[in-house]
């Protein structure tokens, strides 16, 4: 039968593409985190610029402006995150000596040098987070355009970040068919966009291998609070339930697990939400501190690779 709807070209063992190999988490060699802690915790803070105007992206980013120009309500609410919210979030993280990374919009690094100076002092690893939140790596973006976004971002971050940039976190965790190739070609080592696993794994490109360090979408604050419309208390409960399950499983199977949290200052930095962040950090880093290795993404990748 020649109907393309009944033709299966990639019906075979493993995946139906060549980006990575098929394997089940529970079948892999055990992972051991430093100090034999059962759970690694990767906290990332996404520091984002949403442009006031300009062409609409192929896919709207999470938190997009939605009103006719000038969309003052959304523009300023997102800008609030970079003026006010970020400082509350930093205070909460610093209060418990949390280790965290920063995914930063390239254009923001150019716009707000004072903020960049403050961020350079926190000691965290920086990840490229796209040029801005309208620079969505999705669909038929021309290759030159996409390459330019990545190059501009890396150049802007290189000036502001205390360390060289090796990680990439695409806005909205989206990619075009060639994003991985461009990331490898431009010297990056890992991306966070394919959330198909809990541990880092090897990701193939035509320009050599990258690592994918999946950043959990299901526990992303924007996803839980603004898309699912769950309460702050439920968000906190969900993160704690996840941590407890992963600690129990890691202890039982004698193999480390990873919990990744992605935080947005324009959301969690609101006065009615930041208390939730403090409760969450207390539950994880203070009350479960003996079971948790709170680390930078590159250190997590290195430790996982040793397995």
């Amino acid at each position: 039968m020649s109907n393309p709807l009944l033709t299966y070209e990639r019906r075979r063992y493993g995946m139906d593409h060549d980006r990575y190999d098929w394997s089940m988490l529970q079948d892999r060699p055990p992972v051991h985190w430093p100090g034999d802690k059962p759970l690694a915790l990767w906290i990332n803070v996404s520091v984002q610029h949403f442009p006031l105007s300009g062409p609409k992206p192929n896919v709207a980013p999470p938190g997009a402006l939605t009103m006719p120009y000038p969309d003052l309500r959304h523009y300023t609410l997102r800008d609030y995150g970079n003026r006010v919210g970020i400082y509350r979030v930093l205070a909460a993280l610093e209060h418990v000596d949390a280790v965290f990374s920063l995914a930063v919009s390239g254009q923001l690094a150019q716009r707000y040098p004072a903020l960049m100076e403050r961020l350079a002092g926190v000691g965290g690893e920086w990840l490229g987070h796209g040029w801005n939140m309208n620079a969505m790596h999705a669909g038929d973006v021309p290759e030159d355009q996409e390459r330019q976004w990545i190059e501009q971002t890396l150049a802007a971050l290189a000036k502001a970040s205390p360390q060289p940039i090796s990680g990439w976190f695409s806005p909205g965790r989206l990619q075009t068919p060639r994003t991985p190739e461009l990331l490898a070609e431009l010297g990056l080592g890992y991306h966070c966009d394919w959330v198909n696993d809990e541990l880092p794994y090897a990701f193939s490109t035509a320009h050599g291998s990258l690592t994918c360090l999946p950043s959990c979408l299901e526990l992303d604050d924007v996803f839980v609070l603004t898309q699912n419309l769950h309460s702050e208390d439920s968000y906190c409960q969900q993160v704690i339930d996840a941590a407890d399950l992963l600690i129990e499983e890691a202890t039982r199977l004698q193999s480390g697990r990873l919990l990744s949290l992605n935080l947005h200052p324009w959301l969690l930095g609101q006065p009615h939400r930041v208390r939730t962040l403090r409760e969450l950090l207390d539950a994880l880093l203070v009350r479960r501190g003996d079971a948790i290795w709170n680390a930078q993404p590159s250190d997590i990748i290195t430790a996982a690779r040793a397995a």
């Binding site: 995946m15 988490l25 965790r173 989206l174 198909n196 999946p214 979408l217």
Partner: peptide
Amino acid sequence: HPYPPVPGYSIRDYGNRV
């Protein structure tokens, strides 16, 4: 999402892998 549909595909793959 346009190809590659990373969010939808990855979470379903996560189901099988994890």
